[in-house]
Design a protein around this nucleic acid. Structure first.
Lengths: 141, 141
DNA sequence: GTCTCCGTGTTGTATATGCAACATATAAGC
DNA sequence: GCTTATATGTTGCATATACAACACGGAGAC
């Protein structure tokens, strides 16, 4: 029983975020399982729906993913037939991808509801706050 | 440009948490890189320091990891010589593991400082709030 | 005693993730 | 022109992650 170690365990922001992340992502992935999607791929499809075709680099910047991670996620999704790489270094959603993500909406809603209940309105606000802090981290100074 | 998709992209709690997680974990992992640790393994070592030898199941419950994930993380760490599996289904930290995690403290402090600066005190509070919500999610009713 | 349930751990399979190194291509400097 | 910087994408490597299926051992139920 090391008291200092206990302090570190309780204060480490990365450790806390990992725990929160594992639980929340688990809830979404379990709900989405019947659709064949995981939350990462669902996020990419939603992004392509929202913003249209984009380069892998742009996707990575929006989702804070390394370019290699984007590259391999797109590969997997192309194998499933949900996206295509177009001529001009862009990724576009296919009709199958569009139908899939639209059909998965109820499952997404359910997961969102479960987590909203767990977090409460102050918890949801906290997530938003952290997201904003992360996205604006290089804007000051 | 689909307006509804844009709403979903901006509201999805899992998507937001993934983004926050990627950024924060990236900061810690980069700082810890010189020590040879990643934040997951550092968390396990700190837990073993704080609470002493524990079963994989107990570690998984504390860190919200699947038992198979714990199992394979422990395997990796045993290969590195940082932990041992004892007779009685417990995992114990080795002397090498203890020295490693103690020596990595400055790097952890630096990462913690960077993220604290990024988040501000309200952001740090937000992380704590979410962690508490997650840990107490089954306690009500 | 036997059977069932539960806690524990391992293994197969698949996805997710990032760094380093590499290969291109385009743009800017000079 | 050439060079340098910047953006793009891929691949090797290692770790992190979870579900399903399996195996094992103990604790009760009867």
């Amino acid at each position: 029983m090391d008291k200092i170690a206990l302090d570190i365990a309780n204060q480490c922001l990365a450790g806390q975020i990992k725990i929160v992340s594992r639980v929340v992502i688990g809830i979404y992935d379990r709900e989405l399982r019947s659709s064949g999607l995981k939350i990462t791929q669902a996020s990419i499809l939603v992004h392509l729906l929202a913003y249209g075709s984009r380069s892998g680099g742009a996707l990575g910047r929006s989702l804070q993913m390394d370019k290699s991670t984007v590259s391999r996620n797109i590969d997997r999704m192309e194998r499933h037939g949900w996206v295509n790489k177009t001529d001009e270094e862009n990724v576009e959603i296919t009709e199958a991808g569009r139908e899939l993500i639209l059909s998965a909406r109820p499952q997404w809603e359910k997961a969102q509801k479960i987590v909203c209940n767990m977090f409460g309105s102050d918890g949801v606000d906290a997530v938003k706050l952290l997201t904003d802090k992360v996205k604006n981290r290089n804007k000051r100074k």
